[in-house]
Every structure is written in structure tokens, then in C-alpha cells.
Amino acid sequence: MKLSASDLSAIEARLGARNYKPLEVTLTRGEGVWVWDIEGKRYLDCLSAYSALNQGHCHPKILAAMTEQAQRLTLTSRAFRNDQLPLLYEDLAKLTGARKILPMNSGAEAVESALKVTRKWGYEVKGVASNQANIITCSNNFHGRTLGIIGFSTDPLAHSHYGPFAPGFKTVPFGDFDALAAAIDDNTVAFLVEPIQGEAGVLLPPAGYFQRVRELCTKSNVVLVLDEIQTGLGRTGKLLAQEHEDIRSDLTLLGKALAGGFYPVSAVLANNDVLDVLQPGTHGSTFGGNPLGCAIARAALRVLVEEGMIENARVQGEYFMGKLRALESPLIREVRGRGLMLAIELHPEAGGAYKYCERLRDQGVLAKDTHVDTLRLAPPLIIKRAEIDFICEALSKVFD
């Protein structure tokens, strides 16, 4: 017997922990930029699983790589070598110029790895006194949900009633260079920051900010860690968002689209010797660098480049931004973003963005709100102009 959407929602309500408030739509199939619910209605996915689906739903070449590898070898642990991990290393190094790479699974694991390795580097290389290292982060950050990470979150929903938290973190306002400069001291080992704050509402720093940050971190012997888990791999119209200011981080964190939505794969990329402080036994992951994940990630990177998705994100992103700025509605306070990482912030009197996501759903477009008043728009990077027109027509009806 086929269960209805209400039947499935009832099972979730009865058995599932209520840590999410999903939009009321039950999906069963996806292809490219489109998804279908169990009643057969089609929607344009304008969230891309928080940018994990840059390559679109069920990309056939990534699916083929996954199927082939799953029939050969899925997991060895790092106790033994496998024939896919070295090739992923090579692909990432050629694409990004990274000197060393640490494979992990989730984005949060990549962030935790960066926190551990920069502290270890601080003690063993920079010469910080034992247990005195500090790491600077930004207000309104989102780097994951682990206990270590939420300890430096400024979002009350993320950290309330989870303490006590680990010490050793300082918080400065995002985009405030003077505050960062004032916060750095002799014990500062790293500055962890998103090039664009996605969960905060697609917030961009002032122009030239990251060039000044790069110079400051170099001068102060501080590791610059850029969390590109959401902004990386083409989302902003460049392979990495840091390229917009022509800088290179010391550590770059990748995840989400690294496996095209097929598997959790993340990586810490080092442009210097920071990762050299890791020795056998000091850090690890049973599934990190597994052959199945590596084969999938290699295919995901390949199609991203060979099929021109990064350039398409730039071109279509400019077109999309123009269409959004042409929307005429007193409800809209600001339109902002870069590439296909866009947001519409509404005035408070609009009554919150969630109800507009519900109205968009009824028009065949799936998007999600963040920070109450902001509507995020991040379709797969394969989107075409006609599909952007479809989204904007839906937006016009919703805001009319």
C-alpha cells in the first residue's frame, strides 16, 4: 500500500526527533534542477540541499561512478591503502593547487579537523604556551553542529543549553577588519571565517576585506582558515569564493558539493605545511578517504569542470541578480549575493520569509528561509535562463 504525504508526515511526527521544521512537501525523485513529490507534482529546487547539489540531482556520470565503485570496493578504513584516495588527492591538488589534503566526511568534521590541527601547529611550530592558543571566529557564523563548533556560535538556537563549552575562542564582527586586528595576540593561532556567510543570510564582507585579512594573518603568523563548504566548488561563479579577492587561504575547507549530493565527503586543503603536524595516530576517521566516497568525489569534480558549471554559475548568477533587483515590491528590503548564492531580505513588516517559501512551493519553486526575514535562492549550477525566468515569475506572483 502506497503511503500518502500525510501518512509519512505522521510517522515522522511520531518517531522522529523534532530538530527540523521542513517545508511541507514530500519528495520522491529528482533530476537536474527538478524534483517531484509523491503526488507527481514537479518543483524547481532553489536550495540545492544547502549547496550540496551544485551538480544537480542524480547526475548520471556521478551515479555511474558510484555504481561502478560500489560493486568493487566501498570501505577499507585507513588501516589499508586503496586505489581511489591517491587519485582524489591528485585531482584536488591539480584543481586547487593544494599542497596537502586531509579527507574527512562531513563539513563539520572538516571544521573540527582545522581547529585541532591549527592548535597543534600553534604549540609545535609557532611556540604558543601549552593550552593558551586562541582561535578567532566571526559573529553570525555557521560552521556546523558539533559541541566544539557551537561553543563559538552566536546563534542562541545553536548553543543554548549545550554548555559548558571549550575555551580558546574569540568572536569579532564579520567584515570588521579593525576588530580582527585588535583581537589578534601572540597566542592567536587561526582565524576561521566564511567568505560569504550563508546561514546568516548570504552576507558579504566589504570589498577588499579579505585582501587585508590575508596580509594581516601573514604578518601575524596566524593561519587563515576559509570555510568554503557552502561557497566553494563553483557556487559563487568561481571555483573558490576566495578567488574573487585573488587570495589564497592557508587552509580551505570543502564539503557538500564535493560529492555532488551522493555521499558525505569533505576535505581540508592546505597551501602550506600546517597539516605536516599530523602524524600517525594523532587524528583519523574510519570512513574518511574511503574508496566509494573518493570515486564519487572525483566524478563530481570532473563534471563540475568539464560541463562548465562554474562559468554557468557566474553567467546565470548575473542574470538572476538582475531579475531579482527588477522585482518591484515594498516587501523587499535588499537583494544580495554572488554567483548563484543569492538572497532576498524582506522588511520585518512582511511577516517573515517562511510563509513566502510556502507560497513559492505552491507556485512550483522550493526555497528556504533563514534568520526569519531572509529568503535564500541557490539552485543547482546547471540552471538555464528559462528556469531562472520560471523562478522569477513565481516570485513576482508571491510578492504581488
Rank of each mutant, 00 (worst) to 15 (best):
A295K: 00
S51G: 06
A350M: 05
T236L: 10
R214C: 12
Y43Q: 06
R42Y: 04
I229C: 06
H371K: 14
L85S: 06
F177P: 03
V117P: 01
K126L: 14
R248D: 15
V128C: 11
N312P: 04
Q71N: 12
V315I: 15
A259T: 01
L278V: 05
V172C: 10
G32P: 05
D246E: 14
Q55N: 13
R29C: 06
T171M: 13
L275F: 11
E215T: 13
R119K: 10
A108T: 06
A297R: 02
R338G: 07
E349P: 00
G232V: 02
G30E: 08
E228M: 07
G122L: 11
G127R: 12
G208Y: 07
A98Y: 02
L331F: 05
E307Q: 10
T67Y: 02
Q132H: 14
E393H: 12
T218F: 15
T146S: 12
L324K: 00
S113P: 01
L240Q: 05
L253C: 11
G322L: 04
G144P: 02
F287N: 08
D276T: 10
T370C: 11
L366K: 08
D389G: 10
V315D: 12
L204Y: 04
T252V: 15
S160Q: 14
I382G: 01
S4Q: 01
A52D: 04
E318Q: 14
L3T: 09
R99L: 15
V265D: 03
T282D: 12
D91R: 13
E68R: 03
L216V: 14
G288A: 13
C392D: 04
T236I: 11
F262G: 02
N105T: 11
C58S: 14
E39C: 01
T118S: 12
K219E: 15
K120C: 12
L95A: 07
V305Y: 09
C46N: 03
V365M: 07
L240F: 07
L346P: 00
R338S: 08
G32Y: 01
T74A: 05
V117E: 07
A386R: 14
I101E: 05
R302P: 04
T171P: 15
Q84L: 09
S249Y: 08
L115H: 09
R248E: 13
V117R: 05
E307W: 06
T374P: 01
L292V: 02
K170F: 15
K21Q: 13
L15E: 15
N272G: 13
G127V: 11
S130C: 15
R18F: 09
N140Y: 10
L331N: 00
L216W: 09
N290A: 10
Y43G: 02
A378F: 03
L204T: 11
A114W: 04
K384W: 03
T188G: 11
Y354G: 00
L23E: 05
L331D: 00
Y89R: 10
R385E: 10
L278G: 03
E358Q: 13
S106I: 07
V274Q: 07
R81C: 07
S285K: 08
A79S: 13
I247K: 08
E215Q: 15
I332V: 08
H371E: 13
